[in-house]
Design a protein around this nucleic acid. Structure first.
Lengths: 190, 190, 190, 190
DNA sequence: AATGAATGAGTATTCATTCAT
DNA sequence: TATGAATGAATACTCATTCAT
């Protein structure tokens, strides 16, 4: 008698006390944006992804726009970190060029989810000033990273080239080969 | 006796027989997309923009997706026409380079509405196969236009460069100057 | 075979085509306001009272405020009609006094629902300018009706007296008797 | 070593031990009711007005209705006190009449916020028996105050007249002048 | 004793689409 | 052929109240 084999915490209705939930919700929002786009990102969808009751969303965020802003900020920051790392590891112009090529091929084209996020952000930013700031900061950080190894003019031009190459590669049914990527970058930087 | 002197056609809502209405609806859809984004494009909004009853929308189009597809197709086609014209007017490599510069500076950066439409299309295409075809065709036409003057590899690379330059220019609060655009293009093509 | 005994129109899901529905919705709104107060008047409640789907509400009215405004306008107009009739039927000062007494006793105190509506309107008008106009018009009409038989100063004072008598009578657990009403009015008007 | 130089009480949210908080909450509720109406009076709004955490509301009151009841009780009591004072200061019928006039002109019409509170209470009382008692007590006290100088019948009638005059004056865009108020009261009481 | 977090029921409103006329 | 009316599912957001800490 007594001794239930099911612990309360395994039952449906015991979820109270969940520190870090706000954080998890932001991650869930990123998942949903990537999967369904900003247009398909709703309170409900995010709550479902995080396995959290709907009311929790509006408790933690004043509006859906706030969720989007936080999510994109986090994404942009993570993306910029990768940029920083790759270029921070380079020691001279030659290794920097290799870093750019690797960045495009492995990190950017390799994860089309990231491109989707970028384009979603651009569209959202077109109508939401708060997101414009996120875009700006992101662009600034990648340019700064490039300026460690290239002069400002070159940095800016390469930054644009990278964006164009990734965009066309991911959108195309016939994406550029690694060699083509290398060719494009070297033509510009050597 | 008692024949009415007012003909029905003088009364409020008489627009029957309106050939070209479908056409006007597509144009109205383009306006709405540019102004409010795909996410804000609804039957109601388009009908209002075209000053047409709501029921007319679903009479002329099977679904909202059909409207979007037609609208984007029309937009892409018009954009590609500009590309064709500029490059078709060039007679040699030098004038072609000038055409590319002019295209970026005047036609693309000059009308940020077009960039908005392009990004809206990319996002929409990410979740709608029908729109992917539109994107493909558009990219193909611009590449073809470039191949009139440059080898395929160069054409492809320049196409991407153009996209990146325009995107970064329009999104930035500190857009590239005409000289910077010229510098970037010439560095690549000369 | 054939010959169903149940006509389609008796089944749940055949409600299409219901001219005058907007009208019925306004009446339903009045019922709900009387029964549950403005605070308890929701789209859902009105739709339920009119046995109409929820979506129908926002099809016919741009907002809940619009519904309230239309409902109160209708109510005020009907109430003013009664006022007009009673006083219109009076032929001299004496019969006018009788009309006022009858009005208070039978029409106003007799239907406490009307007092509720009036107070609800006052409260709602305190925060909704559109409703303030309704209140004004209502007060004006009753004063006009009184001025048929009394000078403007008297009309205004009696109008206020009526309001006070009705209010206190209805709110009190020990309402005024018909004789007390007569006494109060005659003291003032004779 | 390492003793903190910052005392807890200097940090962000330290309000523990706050006797009289319940009291301040009731006052805050009155402010909110006056400003946003009963319909706009929520736990959150009151807590914000009193600069107190949300949880504190349900700690001190079992329900929102309890808050409303306490708030209206306090308001009615204060309003009745004014009534008492004015009429208590009168020494004979003549000064009592002056007191009534002054009451209407200065205390009641002068602060439309009080009328708003009264009407809010009437509406709330219509659906909440607990509040009905508050209304009753308030009406009784004002009638008692009048009975110090006038016979019961007159007291009751004047009480109603006062209510009607104030109501119409405050609601009207063309409020009664001090002379009109005097005229109405004297006509009745002299 | 006091409170921040949590939640589920409810709110107004939007909208693609269907349908009767 | 054309359209106004109709509708149900979905959306963002609010809030009284409960509860773990």
């Amino acid at each position: 008698m007594m001794c239930t084999l099911v612990r309360m915490s395994d039952l449906k209705r015991t979820r109270r006390h969940d520190p870090g939930r706000r954080d998890r919700l932001i991650d869930a929002a990123l998942e949903v944006i990537a999967e369904r786009g900003v247009a398909g990102t709703t309170h409900r969808e995010i709550a479902r992804a995080a396995d959290v009751p709907l009311g929790s969303m509006t408790y933690h965020f004043a509006s859906l726009d706030e969720v989007l802003a936080e999510a994109f900020t986090r994404h942009a920051s993570a993306a910029a970190d990768v940029f920083d790392e790759r270029l921070g590891a380079a020691t001279d112009r030659d290794t920097a060029i290799e870093a750019v090529i690797q960045l495009i091929r492995d990190d950017l084209i390799g994860s089309p989810k990231d491109l989707v996020m970028a384009v979603e952000l651009y569209v959202a930013a077109a109508r939401n000033p708060a997101l414009r700031a996120v875009t700006q900061a992101w662009m600034q950080r990648s340019r700064d990273a490039l300026e460690r190894h290239f002069d400002p003019t070159t940095a800016r031009e390469v930054d644009a080239l990278i964006e164009g190459l990734v965009l066309h590669s991911v959108l195309s049914t016939d994406p550029m080969t690694p060699e083509q990527i290398r060719h494009a970058v070297e033509r510009y930087l050597r």
